[in-house]
Design a protein around this nucleic acid. Sequence first.
DNA 1: CTTCCACCGGAAGTACCGGTAA
DNA 2: TTACCGGTACTTCCGGTGGAAG
Length: 403
Amino acid sequence: MAMNKLESIFEKFINKSSIFLNHEVLRHDFIPDELPHREEEILKFGEILAPSLRGLKCSNLFVYGKTGTGKTAVARYVLRQLQKKSLELNRKVTICYVNCRTIGTEYRILSSMCSAIGVKIPFTGLATAEVLKRFKTRINDLNVSFIVALDEVDVLVKNHGDDMLYALTRINEELSQSKVSVIGISNDLYFKDMLDPRVISSLSEEEIVFKPYTAEQIKDILLQRVRLAFQPNSFPESTLNFCAALAAAEHGDARRALDLVRVAGEIAERKGEKIVREEHVQEAQRKIEHDRVFEVLSSLPLHSKILLYSAYMLSKNNNEATTGSLYDVYRVLCERFNVEALTQRRVNSLLTELAMLGILDARIVNLGRYGRTKKIRVNVSEETFKKVFSTDERLKFLGLSGK
DNA sequence: CTTCCACCGGAAGTACCGGTAA
DNA sequence: TTACCGGTACTTCCGGTGGAAG
């Protein structure tokens, strides 16, 4: 019986779905052959990078715009075309794309730049300056145009400052053969305020700003992908409009829209339906949010979880948690756990991190005579919360599932 | 008006880890 | 082997602060 059900799940998968044609095109890292409503940006991008094909140094470029406005897609698209063209014409252009959120340190960024030109660098052990030196020596021998795209540079600068950017923008002064150009991509519109003026002026020789998509534009984007991704007629226009409207409400985030489409499709498929409807999209929206929270929560370090649990307990007793009261509860819990409690300073930092992840609301409030503190409110549904805590071995004996 | 609470949050330092170079 | 590197996670120290109480 159970076996039959399991088998039918596998069967469904193998017999190609009734809804999807090609699931891949809805993934984040998929770059379509055409990027609707970004022609202008693509052309400008191309114009700026074109000199590299003639062995000239191209201007450094600074790109900014909110999430899901197509910055990354355009950048990768243009770079791919450029690479293709350079091979056709037999010109030496080397491209290195780095996402500074995933590769978040100066050392590792430099080391991926090195590997782009075939220099092997150990993943730790060297001085950063040494890695830069090796990069310089090698690249000078190669006589190439080198283009680094630093996606989400704001993350790098927030954590490690702009020293590396400075070094990169000045690197050409020490090179006689090759040229290095830098493309900085940022979600944060106020990113420039964090930079040294010298870095700003050399990094933003050129600038491209990506505006959020309108609902109409998102609709076009979705239309293009839906045609590739779904069986004909299984994703009606009304459903598509609904997705576009939802995403447009969230500052025109195309990535969000594609997520909605993909997950809604998966839900419809799992229910064995042939057509994706609005209710599937609504369910998708809930699922995406739930998954996100669950994912973030379960990957949290132990102390953050205990902290969260403390806040949860306080809110259950109708006490508004302040840093102080929360810390008291936290210490008691740690003792019960046989875990050494962290200092309040550290706890405060963890709290700010949790707040940034959107798991907590932490407002700083002034109570005059009674000091200044953070008011903390947990932002997670009880259901999600229980699920996370009952799946963590170390927290099990709290017996949360029983309560 | 001043005082002063209960914390905030920056800066610097410590310990450890996994690694290289000579 | 020794000296040193960067990254992470944490501690210690401490100056700073908005506004109710006095």
